[in-house]
Every structure is written in C-alpha cells, then in structure tokens.
C-alpha cells in the first residue's frame, strides 16, 4: 500500500512537471528551474499531506500553503489543477491578460491560492500570521510554506524566523527548496546564506535535512514536523534546479526563462509524458 502511494505520487509529479513545461512554453515566459525543483514537495503536500477541499477552497479549517518563492507559481498551478481546484485548461493561459493564473500567485484570482506572493521574504511572514491565528483560535489546521534558498538572502526571512520561534509556531512547517542557484549564479557565489541548517537551528527551529525529490523522505519529514512540539520545523530539501529535464538541470540560466517549442518536446520526451494542450 505504502509503495502504491509513493508510486502514485511519483507519477503525479511526472505529470505536474510536464504541465509546468507546457504552461511555461505556452506563456513563453516564466520561471522553469525553480518550478521543477519544487514539484515533488508540492505534489507530496497537496496529494498526501494537506487536509484540503478543492471544492471549498476557502474552507476555514483547511491546512494552508504559502508559496513564499512565488516565482515557482507554475508548479503550484499545475498541482492545484491536478487536485481539481480549476480546469487544467487554465494552465495554457498562464501569464496572459485576463488569465486566472498570474505570473506570481494571486489569491484573489486563483482558487486554492492561500496567499498572494512573489516579492521574496513576505510569504513566510504571512504563513506565520496564519499559524498565529490558528493558535489564537485553537484550530488544528497546519500551515506549510516553501522558501527558495536564494530567498534566504532577504532580511525579512530572518525576522519571520524569529517570530515563528518566539511564538512557538509548531503548527508551521517551512520547506527550503535548496537547489543552490539563483538568477545570477550559485547562491554561495552571489551572497551565501550558508550554513542554512545552522542558521535555522540558531534561530530556534527544529531542522530536518532531506532529499527533496524523494517522496518517502518528504512524507517522513512532514510526520516528524507534526510530532515536534513547541517550535516550528524547517525541512531543508536538497533539490536540483530544473529537476527532470537533463538540459535544464543545475543551470542558473533556466531560472527565469521558458522552453521554446523544440525544448518543450525534448523535455516531454525525457519525462516520458504526452500532454494534450
């Protein structure tokens, strides 16, 4: 059963990656590398971990997700579409005027988006706010956030890290999509936020380090986070930018561009998925 579940999630992640490629190709702009690195985490959250109702996106007791690295919106949109929040057809309208799918997540336009994000550093603060409200209201919902590793260069992340630890937000789990690249190159060359694990430990967080492309490790870490009381948990997920498409992997150049038609075909071939756009 467990193995079936993992296989289901892995197959789902493959489909999501293919839809990320196709929606970005259709938009002819957007952030490919960081969407692909985050895909497995998002699939695990929405298809196994989070208690949500796609037919009631504003259900007050739902678990929440904040994409603090908002530029990975194509990954979130593909997952939300597969989960049934809206028709997959919308994916091919990404970034076009009038679309419900903006370049960065917009909670007012897209069903299932719990917070508008895109300006780095702010999403984690907003996730804290949701977790604080949950504590005040004595609600059981949990809040998940996904940060980029480049995003850790934003000072607000560390203000928020202090807030979460100070208020003992054990209903909050943050992931760091640790793919080591930002627009201008390796994070350690641009302005290193390392050591990421030691920093979060020093800020009072429970820190877990996993392979962010291994469904078993993702699910296990989430369970450990749920079991940790009195402090927030950060799951530092070792990932590969552009994961799943050979010519996009570990390339900073694929941060902020979309595949052309030929690259799309090659990517789909590598993923072994045929997408009907």
């Amino acid at each position: 059963m467990q193995q079936n579940k993992i296989e289901f999630l892995e197959e789902k992640a493959k489909q999501v990656r293919a839809d990320i490629i196709c929606s970005l190709a259709s938009a002819n702009s957007g952030h490919t590398g960081g969407s692909l690195s985050a895909a497995d985490i998002l699939v695990a959250l929405y298809f196994e971990v989070m208690n949500v109702r796609p037919d009631q996106p504003k259900w007050p007791d739902r678990d929440r997700f904040v994409l603090s690295k908002g530029h990975a919106a194509p990954a979130l949109y593909a997952v939300l579409a597969h989960k049934g929040y809206f028709s997959r057809d919308h994916l091919w309208t990404l970034r076009q005027a009038g679309s419900i799918l903006q370049g960065h997540p917009d909670m007012k336009r897209t069903p299932g988006v719990d917070m508008s994000t895109g300006s780095l550093g702010q999403g984690i603060s907003a996730a804290n706010g949701m977790a604080l409200a949950g504590k005040i209201d004595k609600k059981d919902y949990r809040v998940y956030a996904l940060l980029g590793d480049g995003e850790l260069e934003e000072g607000e992340v560390w203000e928020a890290a202090m807030t979460a630890a100070h208020y003992k937000l054990d209903n909050l789990t943050a992931f760091v999509d640790h793919n080591h690249l930002q627009i201008d190159g390796f994070i350690t060359d641009v302005k290193s936020p390392e050591p990421v694990d030691e920093k979060f430990k020093a800020f009072g967080w429970n820190v877990l380090c996993i392979n962010g492309h291994d469904m078993n490790e993702i699910l296990e870490a989430v369970e450990q986070a749920k079991a940790t009381k009195g402090k927030p948990t950060v799951i530092i997920a070792e990932t590969v930018k552009g994961k799943g498409v050979s010519f996009m992997e570990c390339q900073a150049g694929w941060h902020g561009i979309a595949p052309n038609a030929q690259q799309k075909e090659q990517a789909l071939k590598e993923l072994g998925v045929e997408v009907n756009v």
Partner: peptide, 26 residues
C-alpha cells in the same frame, strides 16, 4: 492580551504577518 501580538522591531515582518492573520477572517 490574548489578542495582542508584539512583533518586535520588525516592521516589514509585522505587515506581512498582519496580512496572513487577515486571511483567516480577522
């Protein structure tokens, strides 16, 4: 006191946290 949160000297964090709280209907 149970409805007051001191955010410390972190105004940017405070504003985005306020936004997150507001998403829950507060």
């Amino acid at each position: 006191p149970e409805r007051f949160i001191n955010m410390g000297i972190s105004e940017s964090d405070m504003m985005a946290t306020a936004a997150g709280i507001a998403t829950t209907g507060k």
